[in-house]
Nucleic acid binder design. Sequence first.
RNA 1: UCCGGAGUAGCUCAAUGGCAGAGCGGGUGGCUGUUAACCACUAGGUUGGGGGUUCGAGCCCCUCCUCCGGAGCCA
Length: 431
Amino acid sequence: MNFVNVKDVKNFNGQEVTFRGWIYNLRTSGKIWFLLLRDGTGLIQGVVSKNDTTEEIFNKKDILTQETSVTVTGLIHEDRRSPGGFELIVKDIIIHQIAVDYPIALKDHGVEFLMENRHLWIRSRKQWAVLRIRHTVYYAITEYLNENNFFRFDSPILTPNACEGTTTLFQVPYFDLGYAYLSQSGQLYLETGIMSLGRVYDFGPVFRAEKSKTRKHLTEFWMMDAEAAFVEHAENMQIQEELIRFVIRKVLDKNLSELEILERDVEKLRKADAPFGKMTHHDAVDLLRSKGSEINYQDDLGAQDEFLLTEHSDVPIFIEKWPKEIKAFYMKRDPENPNLVLGDDLIAPEGFGEIIGGSQREDDHDILLQRMQAENMPIQDYQWFLDMRKYGSVPHSGFGVGLERLVTWMSGVQHIRETIPFPRTIYRIQP
RNA sequence: UCCGGAGUAGCUCAAUGGCAGAGCGGGUGGCUGUUAACCACUAGGUUGGGGGUUCGAGCCCCUCCUCCGGAGCCA
């Protein structure tokens, strides 16, 4: 048999082919009936008419159900009336297994019901489309990095100590050594990698036990952390911008039909592939206060602030040079103003919020040590990290991209939980 | 954790303190071009758990549970 993927259907016009997949929907109309078949690569409509087939095949309409697995053979032909422009004149249907009482109808469902049935919900068209965009984004990021001399450097997931505050760590028993913690970021390890490979990245799941309950948070999410030697603040932002614009172009190139399924405004993505905005934290606060926000110059941006900053912008905006008090200990002080650090956040337009956090790192041993002592960090646990500033320290920078945040923005979905196959949130770990 | 909201048929939702209903899905029948098809008939209920007020509670009160939205923190 000539097994074919639905996505390749246009190459088989007029030929007899066989698809393997699942029944997405069934419509009967007397002496003719239609089935929608999905095979993972796409959807195609099959037509079965009484006059053109055997009674045995025609009567399969009485036993087929939504999500029944089948092998379907037939003749491809072009037809405007069919979704996708091609349809299959069915000659034979082999049933693998009949799905009984599939719970997810092609109708509205509540979030709780869909989350309980996440293992089935991923078969639905919109979820399918989002997961395909996730795939594109994932590979676009690695492609950009691989082509720009970054080496994959896998940092550990079980770690002895925290990169950030300990209240947000997941703790696991670790033999006779007490406890280990699930990694929140591979950044500190990546910083060691650049002294070997020059430019490195890791890409994997990270874990944050934050009790965040918003549409932008997961407790387990995928992050790409990149780190580069001899790269300073301005170049760091330039790399981030090139990377994100590369991802936008890849998604527009590969996922137009998925974006259409999701009813994403593609023009907004096209416009975002242009030079990004840039302002200092101080200027951002000025702007926000002029718009009525009560934010202060020592404050982090809130969700409303991120929206206000980007509401009239087609492109993402960098917020750079932050007050050192609200940023992590490892960020390098601004040589022009010791109260600031050379950090940058990249905020996506349309209210999708922060998608990147990055900074030039503090490369001076004594300044870094001071900063760590001021934050009461257990210095002995971080001796290896301080070592890098003793044995050939160099200026260096890095950043972390939240994969699901980026996919949320690209696909335009309203909640981050739809951008990962099995979301982990504060109140849900099933299925 | 805080603030707000919701739990009624498999699903989405109605129901002035007074007989618990509709659409979808299921079943049966009809229809040769359907697009989440349509039409007719039909089955389907411990109204989240516990307690209370009342002649009478899905509806009011207390409590617990579950979920949703938002905030803070962050990617």
